[in-house]
Amino acid sequence: MKDIFGRLAQDFFSTIVFLAIYLITDNVILATAVAIAGAIGQVIYARYKGQTLGYMTWASLALVIVLGGATLLTHDPRFVLAKPAIGHFAIGAIMLKRGWMLRYMPPIVTETVPEYVTVAGYAWAALMFGLGAGTIAVAATGDIKLWAFYVSVVLIGAKAAAFGVQYLAFRVLVGSRIRAAARA
């Protein structure tokens, strides 16, 4: 679990840096510049440590530089605010692969209700696309305080709620299948 949160923090490092600097200084240009420098520094540090960098790391760096650069050139924060949406769209597209979620489920779930796991995988993809669209809509307003609330509360809260619903649904479904099999 610690490894998962570490990877998430690494993947969203530039967004976290941007948000922190903006909330401290109320300066979009400074926050964008520091986020770009932080993303570049993160990659340099990883390379120095001899870590192999995955596709998502390079894609994230490119997005930070391109969208952050557009923000710096135009003084329009909407470019950098849209970055998390691109990540959500990419993850949603990956989640469209049938059965992607099976490897993350405990054996009792995959053996008892595999068809529901596939449906849940598609539901997660839909959630990612919806959250990405919401991020674009909020970014388009240019309201950074609204965006900060959205990325720090709504995005995280929606995923936590979806995880909770999924957990309860699988407990009920597995339990009812096991009871039905015992009766038969």
Rank of each mutant, 00 (worst) to 15 (best):
Y45K: 05
I108Q: 15
V28P: 00
V174N: 13
V34T: 04
V172R: 15
R98G: 00
A181I: 07
A9Q: 09
V153D: 00
V113Y: 07
K159C: 03
G142D: 03
L131N: 06
R177C: 05
Y22D: 03
A133Y: 10
M105C: 11
L173K: 11
T15H: 12
M95G: 02
V151S: 12
V153F: 11
R171E: 13
D76Y: 13
A39I: 00
G68C: 01
G121R: 09
I91D: 06
Q42T: 11
Q10T: 14
T52C: 02
A133I: 13
A39N: 05
Y22E: 00
I136P: 06
G132P: 05
V151A: 11
G175D: 06
L63C: 02
L53S: 11
Y45N: 10
A9N: 05
V43P: 05
G164M: 04
A148G: 08
I44Y: 03
E115G: 14
A180L: 06
F129M: 07
I178N: 00
A133L: 15
Y55N: 03
L96P: 11
T135S: 01
A148L: 04
T71K: 08
V138A: 00
M128H: 15
W124I: 00
A180Q: 12
P84R: 05
K145M: 08
L30M: 05
V153I: 14
I156H: 13
G38R: 01
V64I: 00
E115K: 14
P106D: 09
F18E: 01
I44V: 15
A70D: 06
S14K: 05
K49Y: 06
Y104W: 14
V117I: 14
S14C: 13
K145V: 04
G121M: 13
G132C: 01
R177D: 10
I21S: 11
L168F: 12
M105Q: 15
L81G: 02
G68V: 11
F79L: 03
I4K: 12
A93R: 09
F129W: 01
K97S: 15
G69Q: 08
I29F: 01
V174T: 14
A35I: 04
A160D: 04
F13A: 02
F13V: 09
V151Y: 05
P84M: 01
D143N: 13
F163L: 15
G134E: 07
T32Q: 03
L23V: 04
L61P: 09
A148K: 10
T110S: 15
T57H: 07
D11V: 09
K2T: 13
I44Q: 09
A125S: 15
L72G: 10
F129R: 02
A137S: 12
A148T: 14
A160I: 15
A70Y: 01
V151P: 05
G87R: 05
P106N: 05
A184G: 15
W100N: 04
A120G: 07
K145P: 00
G92A: 09
R103D: 15
G175P: 10
L30G: 07
Y45T: 11
S176F: 10
Y167A: 14
P77V: 01
M128E: 14
M56E: 13
T112L: 12
G41L: 12
G175N: 08
